[in-house]
């Protein structure tokens, strides 16, 4: 029940990001969430999109370097404390996050947190046990 994330290499130059998002919008791909982490000369753009297959093709054709990673999407109530609960559950199970970012899903009135952990299956288990709902790939597509 993982969600596919697309990570793309971005050179640190003006127009670098627009180049990627244009390739996606030209292929009619809608971006649900986006996070960027950067080093001095380059960055990694991480995306959650409605159509991973179409996005991958569009990036390949436009000559970008990318990869697809399984991440977890966790839904929380849109109120104070809900994200803390997610982090606490994972911390108590001794799991550390590689990275995380969140977005608000209007149709569901929910905050959705994307998280990357080393052991995805174990994380899924502890989250489920704590009653925290996970969002499926198909649901992301329909948002």
């Amino acid at each position: 029940m993982a969600v596919k994330q697309i990570s793309v290499f971005v050179e640190n130059k003006s127009g670098g990001l627009a180049d990627i998002t244009k390739a996606l919008s030209d292929a009619n791909v809608n971006i649900r969430a986006l996070s960027l982490s950067e080093a001095t000369d380059f960055g990694v753009l991480r995306l959650i999109v409605d159509d991973v297959f179409a996005a991958g093709n569009a990036l390949k054709e436009s000559g970008h370097i990318y990869n697809i990673t399984d991440v977890l999407a966790v839904a929380g109530e849109d109120k104070p404390g809900s994200i803390t609960k997610i982090f606490t559950v994972l911390a108590e199970a001794g799991m550390s996050l590689e990275y995380a970012y969140a977005f608000f899903a209007k149709s569901q009135e929910k905050a959705i947190m994307i998280i990357k952990v080393a052991d995805r299956l174990a994380a899924k288990k502890v989250l489920k046990e704590a009653g925290i709902p996970l969002v499926k790939e198909e649901e992301i597509a329909k948002l």
Partner: peptide, 18 residues
């Protein structure tokens, strides 16, 4: 030029290779 072999979703891995 960035290549598939060098790329990762994890920035730290890429900077380590760099």
């Amino acid at each position: 030029e960035m290549s598939q072999e060098m790329f990762s979703d994890n920035l730290a891995e890429v900077t380590a290779k760099e």
